[in-house]
């Protein structure tokens, strides 16, 4: 699974591309944390437009990034969430701590 990273100031947009499970989460975690550290990222936006599959391991990855970002006073958002991804986000309680925006430009305005 290949992810795309776009840095805008202290904000990072991560486009998750493909299937996010326990196997693919390992490499994304390492890659993502490196970018956050190197570029002094404070706010994180996950773009789900290219995501074809996610399970609880993917939820674990997003929630752990949320905890890290919270520690440095930043925010995490998800955008372009399909109805299939929305179903597991809702049942997992992800939206209690992470805001969903329709698309990246709207999220950027709020963060």
């Amino acid at each position: 699974m290949e992810s795309f990273y776009e840095v805008q100031g202290n904000k990072l947009i991560v486009t998750l591309n493909g299937e996010l499970d326990h196997h693919t989460a390992k490499s994304i975690r390492t890659e993502l944390d490196q970018v956050v550290l190197k570029k002094r990222i404070e706010n994180l936006i996950f773009d789900m437009s290219q995501l074809r599959f996610i399970d609880s391991s993917g939820i674990g990855l997003i929630l752990a990034r949320y905890k890290n970002i919270l520690n440095i006073g930043g925010k995490v958002a998800v955008v372009n969430v399909s109805s299939r991804v929305d179903k597991i986000f809702m049942m997992s309680g992800l939206y209690r701590v992470i805001t969903k925006y329709e698309n990246t430009s709207i999220a950027l305005k709020h963060m």
């Binding site: 399970d55 609880s56 391991s57 939820i59 674990g60 752990a64 049942m91 997992s92």
Partner: peptide, 10 residues
């Protein structure tokens, strides 16, 4: 391991 603990709930 960053497990969310919701596997069975899912």
């Amino acid at each position: 391991l960053e497990r969310s603990g919701i596997g069975f709930t899912v």
